[in-house]
């Protein structure tokens, strides 16, 4: 066995650490299942509130979105994890990740939903309102369904980024896939666990990439 094979593609080490990595994978999946809906929902709220066009509310939303889009997610996460203890609250790793991701991803999702809402023409609003639908009813039944459809590729693309971003949870020692891979690498003095994690990430996310590609092509074709 060559040195490279032994160091990077060591089947024995992969087999030995696979269970450990699988635990990490479940945590990554769990993170995605929590963080993506929470972030998307937060973004939806931001975008719908922005559509109300209330002056002060809009100023507050612009500040919120700008601040959390400007901050690097890693910085945000470390901040959210380390500051609450000073206020007497011992925050769990999972809580810190969920909060940091809510702040970061909701501002991105928010901008996407906002673009979608703005892509729906004034005529749709007027038609709905002229039949006696209220603002919220029009938003919920007429505008949002079209808005989401118009920005679906962007939503999927952002979701892909969020899923990948969950790997930064490893810096606060949350036992997700990246953390498991790094730990296994350090324990075995071998890079094979990282290779294995890479493969797992790819297998997990490649279908999403394919979906995105198809959505983008469909959008171009529909023009």
């Amino acid at each position: 066995m060559s040195d490279v094979t032994a160091l990077f593609f060591n089947a024995e080490i992969m087999a030995k650490t696979a269970g450990f990595l699988l635990d990490g994978l479940w945590m990554t999946v769990l993170l995605c299942l929590v963080v993506i809906p929470v972030g998307a929902l937060g973004g939806l709220v931001v975008a719908v509130l922005a559509a109300l066009k209330r002056r002060w509310l809009n100023i507050a939303l612009v500040i919120y979105v700008d601040v959390f889009r400007a901050l690097p997610p890693l910085v945000l996460l470390v901040f959210v994890y380390n500051v609450p203890p000073f206020a007497g609250y011992k925050i769990s790793e999972l809580e810190a990740v969920v909060i940091a991701f809510l702040l970061n991803t909701s501002s991105y999702y928010g901008e996407i939903f906002r673009a979608g809402i703005e892509s729906v023409g004034r005529g749709q609003w007027e038609a709905a309102r002229s039949t006696g639908l209220g603002w919220w009813q029009t938003m919920g039944w007429v505008v949002l369904p079209q808005a989401v459809r118009n920005v679906l590729p962007d939503l999927v693309s952002n979701t892909l980024e969020v899923a990948k971003l969950t790997s930064i949870a490893s810096v606060i020692a949350l036992h997700e896939l990246m953390f498991a891979a790094r730990s296994a690498q350090q324990a075995t003095f071998n890079y094979s666990p990282l290779i294995l994690a890479t493969v797992i990430y790819f297998v997990l996310l490649w279908p999403v990439v394919r979906l995105l590609s198809r959505l983008e092509h469909r959008k171009i074709a529909a023009r």
Partner: peptide
């Protein structure tokens, strides 16, 4: 909203809801 239910409006550009069927358009309100 109650007033508007008593006043129909038809637009130059139709403004049908593209994500709904004809029947869906008519029944929504």
């Amino acid at each position: 909203n109650a007033v508007r239910r008593r006043i129909g409006m038809v637009f130059q550009s139709f403004n049908l809801y593209p994500h709904m069927t004809a029947l869906g358009n008519v029944t929504l309100a």
